[in-house]
Design a protein around this nucleic acid. Structure first.
Lengths: 213, 213
DNA sequence: CGAATACTTGATCCGCATCAAGTGCCGTGG
DNA sequence: CCACGGCACTTGATGCGGATCAAGTATTCG
């Protein structure tokens, strides 16, 4: 949910309270699975991931929030406990708006629910698409999909192999091997930890059709 | 989204038009991926699955709708094309409300967006939980989870091994083998095509902790 | 009763996880 | 400015879970 640039939610900015600003380090947790939501969060700068950890310790990266986006809204409006944890993927600065104030403001601006519904409907579509890709595609396809998605939506972040693995629901060594393959095919170029996309259309082809050979 | 029993959406029932009732056979498609939504659907009786088919022909069962529920709402309110197809899992009778009428009625009952948002938020949570389970758990756990979910929410439907496989993102022979294991452990009982849950708490334990031995 | 659909089984194979032992890279503090 | 510790990355060997395939058996429905 974008706050800046979106008239529908501008009323929320009147709730910003200088005292409710907080800075977080990389890897720091903002909230944890099973807690009850007490606030809505607005990301002033940085990058936040919604993650869920399995018993075997693997982190699954479900959703990613960038600058100027709101998060923590799903559980808040569902009236449920958090189903996953929010964790900083970069140093981040964020504002929190207490639950009661959010609810009051939405009650005074009921047309905002329409925007919220639209936004949640899009997120649901994205979640189900990712779920489908993860369960039906081979790893090359998933990695190609992730590279394209990351380049398009979060181009400024330096994605680690670990993070890519978490998003693709696979493991670091596998991502590294696949990146090696993609580099041999001249579709990407790795120097240092940076990954540069060279042939976007071929990557799209791999991501969508699963056709490599 | 439930229509009966939910005051928030009762206004929609005034839009029901006897001429817009339609009966579908099992396996019949209601709408297909990539089409533009032109209506909201209300399921009078039967069972409908939201499915997505992979290139290799595997059907992934993303969401399931039962009697008295609305569907087709996600794409309609997201303003997107369908990201998956709706298909009858049983003979079904449904009503369609044309898009324009839905939008008009929601405009006249703006408080309904609040209910819609809450409902979508819950669906998003469920979708991400399923996605996590599919990507991080072994098949026994997924099947146990599916059996419990089906028993709780759709107890009257006779779930085929194929449908269970589609929901668990696996294949029929694998489901059959797992069901055999669960039966040997006296957690379920299969006669004919019927599956009866004998030890619910043990199944929950398997589904949640992945601990079998 | 016959046809279609659902189920079952075992043999084989392969993709990817897992593990372990490294090598680089980078920021921090001395 | 360099040394050092920690994190990120890399590589290859091995194993296993579950896919795949195919042939056959039930079951249900028209």
């Amino acid at each position: 949910m974008r706050l800046n640039k979106v008239n529908e939610l501008e009323f929320l900015s009147t709730l910003f309270d200088q005292e409710k600003i907080k800075d977080y380090d990389r890897w720091e947790l903002i909230y944890s699975e099973n807690e009850s939501p007490e606030a809505l969060y607005y990301l002033e700068s940085g990058l936040v991931g919604l993650v869920k950890v399995s018993k075997s310790g693997n982190e699954n990266l479900l959703r990613i929030f960038k600058q100027d986006e709101l998060f923590g809204h799903r559980s808040l409006f569902a009236g449920e406990a958090y189903h996953a944890s929010a964790k900083c993927l970069e140093k981040s600065r964020l504002r929190m708006i207490p639950k009661e104030e959010v609810m009051k403001a939405f009650a005074e601006n009921p047309e905002a629910y329409q925007y919220l519904a639209k936004y949640l409907a899009k997120e649901l579509g994205r979640a189900e698409n990712r779920s489908f890709i993860v369960s039906e595609s081979h790893i090359v396809e998933r990695v190609a999909y992730a590279l394209l998605y990351f380049k398009k939506v979060f181009p400024e972040h330096m994605w680690t192999r670990q993070e890519i693995a978490n998003y693709c629901a696979t493991r670091t060594p596998t991502v590294i091997k696949v990146l090696g393959d993609l580099e041999k095919m001249n579709l990407i170029c790795q120097n240092r930890r940076q990954i540069e996309v060279l042939d976007e259309s071929k990557l799209i082809q791999i991501a969508e059709e699963g056709a490599i050979f």
